[in-house]
Every structure is written in C-alpha cells, then in structure tokens.
Write a protein that binds this DNA or RNA. Structure first.
Lengths: 170, 170
DNA sequence: TATTGTTATACTCTATAACTATA
DNA sequence: TATAGTTATAGAGTATAACAATA
C-alpha cells in the first residue's frame, strides 16, 4: 500500500475520503441507469439472478450448475430452477457433460447470445449518448478513472466471496 | 446523435463509445463492492428494497407510504409490510400525519439514523482504503469523473420513472 | 366520492432436506 | 462413499383485490 507525504494530502482536493464519498454517491445512480436500460432492451422479465447467470454463462461456456450457483450466490436447487426458466425462454442450452455425466454443461443459445449482445450494445449506445454531453477531456477523465478503479477493485471477483446472498442482498 | 469527424475519434482515446464500454464494465463491479460492504456493517438482514426505503426516509423525513412506494418501486401493500419490518427492528417510526390523518408519516428512529450512518461511514472508510492504492492524480481523475457523471446522469431521479420494478428487477 | 393505507389471498423465488444418477 | 444435480416442501416477499378510515 502506497504512502504519501502529508502535504500532498491537503494539497489535492481529492483525498481518499472525498473520493470514496463521490463513489458512494454516484455509483448507485449509474447502476440504476444501466439496469433500467438493459431491461428495456430485451432483458425484460428476467430476474437479476437470471441475468447474472446469463452473463456468467456467456463468459464461461460449458459452465456447470455449481459454478453458476457459486457465482450468482444462490443454492443449487434454486439455480436449477432458475436455469429452467432460461431454457424455456431458449436463451440457454443445458446438456450433460460428456466426460462426467453427472455434470451439466450450460451454454448460451444463439438467441441467448444475440439477445444479450443486443441489450448490451443498446445500453452502451444509450450511455454513449449521455456521455456525449461531456467534453472529450471529461470523458478521458472518466476512462482513466474506470481503469484505475478496475485495477483497485477488480481482484477478488469471479467467485462470490463477498458474503453476498441473492435472496437477501438483492 | 452527435457525429464527429473520423480524426477526432482516433485522436482521442476516450470516445463516447469507449467511455460507455468502460462504464458498463466497471460500474457493476463497484456496485457489488459497495453493497457487500454496506451489508457487512449493520445492514445485515435487510432486503434491498428495505435498504432503499431507509435511505429515502432518511432524506425525506415524514415521507408517506405512497412516496416510499413510488421511489422504491413496490406496490403499496408491499411497502406497508416492508415498513412493518423496519418498525419491528426499530429503525423506522410510523406515525399518522397530524394535518391529514389518512397519511402515514415515516421517519428514522435514532437507532435507524445511527445504524445507517455507521454503515455508510464504514463503507466509505473501506472504499477510502482501497482508493488509497491510487496516486492522488488518479484519485483526482476519479473525483472529476464522478462529478461529470453526476451532472450527466443525475437528473430524472427521485421518483422511480425508470420502469424499474423491484420484484422483477432486483 | 376520492385518497391513503391495511387486510386477505395467491404467486414467485429461494432455502433445506431427501433423493437419483454417476464417479 | 462422494459428487452433481433434481424433486419435494416450506418460508419470505410481492402483487392484486377488497376493505376501512379520513378528507
């Protein structure tokens, strides 16, 4: 963990504390926008856990139910039923793995991939419209900020070790 | 939709589109961290809608059930029960408004205010620890970015006009 | 009559426990 | 015997409909 001389803390208007306060204020708002947009664009009727499962499976084709459960933060039977819903909607395909026939191999159907991609592209386009209201310098600050934040907060993802549990924490 | 000459797109590493892509990537991750931290610090056992109600009432002392329902995105009977839970936990006080005795006047109890404040402070402190890993210049970029984003996305809040509905969209 | 909130009832999502199939 | 997943059953949260109280 880096240390800075005291002067530099008061010299800059962006102390750790102030930065944190900004994040607390603005991030939830951004998140609400992103969710609402995704939802308007083809993700209607999906619960958040279903949505998370979809994204996870998209990144991990052939994932097992247990893996999805770990990532999404739900118990195995719940995920089994959750996936039922995605299969019925023909967004996800469920096959049994050929090397271990106990396991299930989950993958996005063509429809699933397309739907997800469309929702993402649409949302991204909408966000792009919004940030077009910024100067290119401000946008650059946003990109730099996101890169930094990803570096700092980006570890420890991938398996749900946050104590987060969907049925309570949503 | 604004158009830019091709050169300016390549000249800047922060096109609208790229900026939007960064937001899509990083914001959800940040949000998960914030939620997990809040939860660890006194907000345990509260559902997200309860949590939102708490925050709303904190900012709008004396709010009615309908107002909370509108903000939180739940039907009125659901909010009535949701608030029951907060009252039982002694986080919220429910009184009838003196000018219109049909209305309910919701306010945070002392415990509620303290619990919320503690959770927020703790979370902020944790985020501050994390962003201490950034240079002060990077932190400044983050603050600038948040300020810009708030300006652009900050309107249209306050009453739930996003089409968001808690029971499906959580 | 209109408005604010509550009670009654049903549905969905999730959990735990018991079970099946494969290793 | 252990592991991956499903089925059975129960609890929590939410919705709609019907109701009560106040304006």
């Amino acid at each position: 963990m880096k240390q800075f001389p005291k002067e530099s803390i008061s010299a800059f208007p962006s102390s750790e504390k102030e930065t944190a306060a900004w994040l607390m204020d603005v991030v939830p708002m951004l998140m609400r926008h992103i969710r609402a947009e995704m939802r308007r664009r083809g993700m209607k009727g999906l619960t958040l856990p279903q949505f998370r499962a979809l994204i996870y499976i998209n990144r991990h084709q052939g994932a097992s139910l247990s893996q999805v459960a770990g990532m999404v933060g739900l118990a195995l039977p719940s995920v089994s039923k959750l996936i039922d819903g995605l299969v019925v909607r023909e967004l996800v395909e469920r096959a049994s793995a050929e090397n271990d026939r106990r396991r299930v191999s989950l993958s996005l159907s063509r429809t699933g991939r397309e739907t997800l991609a469309r929702a993402r592209k649409g949302t991204e386009a909408r966000l792009a419209e919004k940030v077009a209201g910024l100067s290119s310098e401000e946008r650059r600050a946003v990109c730099r900020a996101m890169r930094s934040l990803q570096a700092v907060f980006g570890g420890a993802e991938e398996v749900n070790n946050t104590g987060w549990r969907a049925h309570v924490d949503n």
